[in-house]
Nucleic acid binder design. Structure first.
Lengths: 353, 353
DNA sequence: TTGTAGGCGTTATCAA
DNA sequence: TTGATAACGCCTACAA
């Protein structure tokens, strides 16, 4: 061996080379590679041998150019990295998506993008890199989505923010019902001065959970003024709790719109000398790992985040399959894939309430 | 508007269509799109107008097929999702990588892959989806890497596990020196019964940090038997600490090979009624957000994780640029891109030691 | 400076 | 069942 050879990379084998080795045409190799049944057994064997001998792997670009498909999906997350990695909710959703995709031969492209304001992301999407897109953590302002939908099938995690979006496909839980459930727990515990730290006001999940909270309080005839806005981050949750404590020092119950914010709330409560659940009972939302990470294990409204990711991928895959079938036929919608998939929430009792 | 139109997606515009609208040839449009300077100003204007009018975006597959480049990189992480999302170290590295890539027009493909044992991942890589790969958290067993290097330029985060890999490019810190530094802090504090919770034994970072720990103790003439193996997870760190406490109940100093494991250690220490740093002084490694997440802020050996990600991407991009230049010329290595990039560590003092 | 033409590695449409 | 032969959308000599 010479000591310093420039690593020269052998060119990847092509269909043509395989065809030559196997003594058949490119078309036949293509059939074998793609698992067509209409090929003679001994030919299949010959091709398979050649493929392994040459260590052949099909070129994705060429395949996608010819077939107009990529076998890839994008997961678009309009948040910055810190946020994305900071909230276990995202981890669960990604986990679910990949679990579904592992059963297919689609791959996932993660697009975490608030830094470069959607421009690069949108270009990436529009340049035919993927067959469809999954969008989570969608904010009111993220209207690049509208354009996206005209380009490729899209499925949302959480009801999309655009009010006009009646045709949108999404997977969600009934956030209002969930929040109601969580708040009711506080009521049932006999708490009568109940506050909330909301999620982002520009996200349906934030808005709906507030709605559910208010509904429960009104039903119980409890004042609904103890509301402070958070943003689904630990810091935001902590800050909101601080403001709440300042404004309403007498609260004895707190509904926090996410477990992550819940940990922030717990910190502030302790910092202010309030015991949990003694002085203040706390209920979170998500049932993410964050729920058990704080000083007190959180009672929380559980949503099946991972299952939601799984369902999102599943819906998108089915839409894609449908599109492939429709060669021409009907324009009446069979509705084989439902636009909305609503998953259940349930209350998980731990120590905080 | 009809109520239920099957969303029919208009075909994406092509170079050819732009050419027609602008009244020039495809070649010219291609030049303009790719920013060639050798084009008349008014032609550039015409083409630009046409591009915007049609909302044209180049097709990646076609471009990549013709140019034999993808303008995409892969980040390969041979870990499961839970682990990937659980350790802030990865978040920092990804952050750094994307920060570098944002200055280029390369995109990043994240491949978190221990589930499907590398098969799908390897196929993805080998089918020409990316121009190069970044690999972090590389274990001894992950030998698929060897094959990868023959296919495309690769840069490692952390010295690769394969001993024979002299030609490998990587970005790392001097783990042994860092661990030595951290351990020395415990010695300087007057601790004389010092233990360690190591990282994974099949990863260079784990091994080297143990080496540094041992070196510091030997220098100080302190027994080196208080060693328990962790695996860079909270649970692993906690379990190792538990074993250590059982075996050496008298330890007064603890070097933990990662902050994440450090939080696990802190929990166990408290659970056993040991105060920190009173009874046991603790030093971590990484200086990740996990360092300040536990009950006591960790004194830790800081490594510039985000900068390391940035550097990894930078090295890979430069290798790629070099490869593009070398049309034929030399076979003596200019070594314009260094094989190893070693970043500094420093001790960050907080409350735990 | 601009246009022509060939090719990149597959898939898909025909015939045979 | 198999094999020619077009596309697919773009880049890139080469020629004008």
């Amino acid at each position: 061996m010479t000591t310093s050879v420039r690593q020269t990379r052998p060119p990847q084998p092509t269909l043509e080379m395989v065809a030559e080795v196997a003594g058949v045409s490119r078309a036949t190799v293509s059939r074998v590679v793609n698992g067509s049944t209409r090929v003679g057994p001994e030919i299949v064997a010959a091709v398979t041998t050649a493929v392994e001998e040459l260590n052949y792997v099909p070129n994705r670009a060429a395949r996608s150019l010819a077939s107009r498909q990529t076998q890839a999906l994008a997961l678009v997350v309009p948040e910055d990295m810190t946020r994305f990695f900071g909230d276990p909710y995202f981890a669960a959703v990604v986990q679910g998506i990949t679990r579904r995709l592992d059963q297919s031969d689609f791959t996932l492209n993660l697009l975490v993008a608030s830094s470069d304001p959607q421009h690069k992301t949108l270009r990436y999407l529009r340049s035919g890199n993927v067959d469809g897109a999954l969008i989570i953590s969608h904010h009111t302002g993220d209207d690049f989505v509208a354009e996206l939908e005209t380009t490729m099938p899209v499925v949302f995690g959480g009801r999309p923010a655009n009010a006009d979006n009646l045709e949108a496909y999404f997977v969600d839980v009934d956030n209002a019902a969930g929040a109601d459930l969580g708040t009711q727990r506080l009521v049932d515990l006999g708490r009568r001065r109940i506050g909330t730290v909301t999620g982002s006001a520009d996200m349906p999940a934030g808005i709906d959970r507030l709605t559910g909270f208010l509904r429960a309080l009104e039903r119980a005839g409890i004042p609904t003024d103890a509301v402070e806005h958070g943003d689904f981050t630990v810091q935001g949750g902590a800050a909101a709790t601080r403001r709440l404590l300042e404004r309403c020092p007498d609260i004895d119950g707190l509904f926090v719109a996410s477990d992550l914010m819940g940990t922030g709330a717990l910190d502030v409560l302790r910092e202010h000398g309030r015991s949990v659940p003694g002085d203040v009972a706390v209920v979170g939302f998500d049932d993410s790992p964050a729920a058990t990470r704080g000083s007190v294990p959180l009672t929380t409204v559980s949503q099946p985040s991972e299952e939601m990711g799984f369902a999102m991928a599943d819906v998108l895959l089915r839409r894609l399959a449908d599109d492939a079938d429709d060669d021409d036929d009907d324009d009446d919608d069979d509705e084989s894939v439902p636009h909305r998939t609503i998953m259940p929430t349930r209350l998980v009792l731990r120590e905080s309430a």
